[in-house]
């Protein structure tokens, strides 16, 4: 009897979790969403449906990333189309959405005059924690985000990385169902960037869905299960990093001179025949050249999809992974 009871329970449990998987409404849903400022279109008819998990919205400056974040986080109304956040309409149910999301904007919205701890306690109070609970939570988060020793110092004395961490900590005082991050690591050094990535991964593992915007392909590649490429207010591609890279076609043939310097990169369709043909052409141009294969990166995918790079070249100096050759002609 006991065993039968267990099986019934187990079957029920499986059905329950399965049903959950299939009936769960999308975290974010957009249908034909447009938005303009002063007659200038910023978003042009976006369609998007995202379930739980980590999603990256990838696009260059001016693509409309922040505008979309502002719409999804109830800050600005959209002009036309349908928006649903956790199944709720920001136009009429903004209040209910605000109980369930957190936002970390592009510029750390932390109070410089207050200390890190005071920032957290204030926000904790506003989110509905009692004073003692808000203080306890503040200490917990200061510890977790490795700013405990600076908790009593005014934020004005914090470094950029510390401010971002504090900003993220504020967003997590009450763990949200969806966390919006607008360019969370722009302007951070590599070490701070990697530390922040770890924090975001931990969060996702704890059940928070993350929707982040970025102009760093590496960031989208590192964090997101799904990447949406936004360019000029339009969605130009969507899928996993692997899928986007596969859109480029095959591998690149990298041509090096005798000293090992990359002199050219040639896109191929990946077939043996094409590689042989390209190699032959390269060999005919000059003696002593060597070739190697390079797999497509998200950078290539972005260039392929939009016709331009994801971010201005001057940014490339502080990018975490700079193996994509800038300034090199990519022939087709």
């Amino acid at each position: 009897m006991q065993r039968a009871g267990f099986f019934v329970y187990a079957a029920h449990y499986v059905c329950h979790t399965q049903c959950m998987m299939y009936t769960e409404s999308p975290v974010l849903e957009l249908a034909g969403v447009s938005k303009g400022y002063g007659g200038e279109p910023v978003l042009r008819g976006l369609d998007l449906s995202l379930g739980r998990g980590v999603h990256a919205l990838l696009g260059p400056n001016g693509a409309g990333k922040t505008t979309l974040i502002n719409i999804l986080t109830t800050l600005v109304p959209h002009d036309s189309g349908t928006v649903r956040v956790l199944g709720l309409d920001p136009a009429t149910q903004a209040g209910r959405i605000r109980h369930r999301i957190s936002v970390t904007g592009q510029f750390a919205a932390v109070d410089e005059v207050l200390t890190g701890r005071e920032n957290l306690v204030l926000m904790g109070r506003l989110l509905g924690l009692r004073p003692a609970a808000a203080r306890a939570r503040a200490d917990e988060l200061l510890e977790r985000f490795e700013i405990a020793t600076a908790g009593g110092r005014r934020v004005a004395t914090y470094s950029g990385g510390m401010r971002r961490r504090l900003d993220l900590a504020i967003s997590l005082i009450w763990p949200p169902e969806v966390l919006f991050l607008d360019e969370p690591t722009t302007g951070l050094d590599t070490r701070s960037r990697i530390a922040l990535w770890d924090q975001i991964r931990t969060l996702a593992a704890e059940g928070t869905s993350v929707f982040l915007t970025t102009q760093y392909l590496e960031e989208a590649d590192q964090l997101a299960e799904q990447i949406t490429v936004l360019d000029g207010g339009r969605i130009v591609a969507q899928g996993s990093a692997g899928h986007l890279k596969s859109l480029v076609g095959g591998a690149f043939l990298r041509v090096l001179d005798g000293s090992g310097t990359v002199v050219q990169e040639v896109a191929t369709d990946g077939s043996a025949a094409d590689l042989a043909r390209v190699s032959a052409e390269v060999a005919a141009t000059a003696p002593g050249l060597r070739v190697e294969l390079r797999q497509p990166t998200l950078d290539d995918a972005f260039l392929h999809l939009t016709g331009h790079r994801a971010h201005p070249t001057e940014d490339s100096a502080d990018r975490p992974d700079d193996n994509a050759p800038h300034g090199l002609e990519v022939a087709r």
């Binding site: 998987m21 949200p176 059940g207």
Partner: peptide, 17 residues
């Protein structure tokens, strides 16, 4: 893409002030 297993730890809404 494969969806993550649904967690039973969906965060509760913040009470607010």
């Amino acid at each position: 893409t494969p969806t993550r297993p649904p967690t039973d730890r969906t965060p509760s809404p913040a009470p607010g002030s």
